[in-house]
């Protein structure tokens, strides 16, 4: 009799707990990164985590160990098993992750690509910097610094990749719109700092009237600075525009080498990615392509930008 009483109570308690969990049916969002642990990705992941916390959802953060695609595939499969409400993912590989993403979409789980797009699967949304627009900002700034007919060096990224192509196009289009007769000396690289340094050295050797150097990424700007130092050029004698808003780039600005930087909003990429995934989980309509924008960092606002964006924590020049 007493035992029955206890069992009865237990059943009521369990039922109550069950109802409570049902009432609190909170959303579960899986954020799956590519396993990169560098500064840029620390900022993107930090932004994502913050957004998850702010929205009050159950936030699962998992990463592909050592950037291994098959591990990321397995994680996506496990998250389908886990019945998460949405997935935000920074793919290790644009094409290779597609089979698993297709299965998630088929299971009714919205998938948001963060920073890198996915080819071969129709993702719910793709959240990243619009490279053409960001490079336009860089090119417009450069246009204000020179006269028509001046010589400008542009250090490219990998031209076999969309990111490299878009940044170059964005910069050159904006610059030529104002100065159609500007002479652009191209230094081709595949995102390699040493290639940038060697190329800028050759350009400096062949021309003594270069007014400005612009780079497709901050590593290229580091190479350009090394080349200028080798030629005895002092900081600021030739203007330098970076791209990325990386800690190294902003350090160069604080030292007087860089006069402008088209900064990506790294934390915002992660945050918007997760926010978009949450919105999609709530069955709200989301844009297929979301640009997280770029910010033109100048010596006048570098300290504020570094602090607000979180980049400051990685900088040497405080």
């Amino acid at each position: 009799m007493k035992l029955g009483h206890i069992t009865g109570r237990l059943a009521v308690a369990l039922l109550a707990v069950g109802m409570m969990t049902a009432a609190h049916a909170e959303l579960t969002i899986a954020y799956i990164t590519n396993g990169n642990t560098n500064e840029g990705w620390t900022l993107i992941n930090g932004g994502a985590k913050e957004a998850g916390k702010k929205a009050g959802v159950k936030f699962i953060e998992l990463a592909a160990e050592k950037g291994e695609l098959s591990k990321q595939l397995a994680i996506v499969e496990d998250m389908i098993t886990r019945h998460v409400d949405a997935i935000a993912i920074a793919p290790v590989d644009s094409a290779g992750i597609a089979p698993a993403v297709k299965r998630a979409l088929a299971a009714g789980i919205p998938v948001v690509a963060v920073d890198t797009n996915i080819t071969g699967a129709n993702v719910t949304s793709y959240v990243a910097t619009d490279n053409i627009k960001a490079a336009n900002v860089q090119g417009s700034w450069a246009a204000e610094q020179i006269k028509d007919g001046d010589k400008v060096v542009y250090v490219t990224g990998d031209q076999g990749q969309s990111t490299g192509q878009e940044r170059k196009k964005g910069f050159i289009d904006a610059l030529k719109a104002k100065h159609p007769h500007v002479k652009i000396i191209e230094v081709s690289t595949t995102w390699d700092q040493t290639q940038a340094q060697n190329g800028v050295e050759s350009a400096l050797r062949a021309n003594n009237d270069i007014k400005l150097i612009a780079c497709a990424w901050d590593g290229g700007a580091l190479g350009a600075v090394a080349a200028m130092k080798g030629y005895g050029i002092r900081a600021g004698e030739i203007k330098l525009a970076g791209f990325d808003g990386s800690p190294g780039g902003l350090d160069m600005m604080k030292q007087g080498w860089q006069q402008a930087n088209a900064a990506q909003m790294l934390a915002k990429i992660g945050a918007t990615g997760v926010e978009t995934a949450i919105a999609a989980a709530k069955k709200q309509k989301v844009e297929a392509r979301i640009d997280t924008g770029a910010f033109l960092v100048l010596p006048s606002n570098v300290d504020k930008f570094a602090k607000d964006s979180g980049v400051a924590q990685f900088m040497k020049m405080k």
């Binding site: 950037g67 291994e68 695609l69 098959s70 590989d93 290779g96 597609a98 089979p99």
Partner: peptide, 16 residues
Amino acid sequence: VLIGRMDSSSGKIAQM
């Protein structure tokens, strides 16, 4: 089996 599963292939697969 691995490249079938990933529907793609490259030199960077099967790390470690």
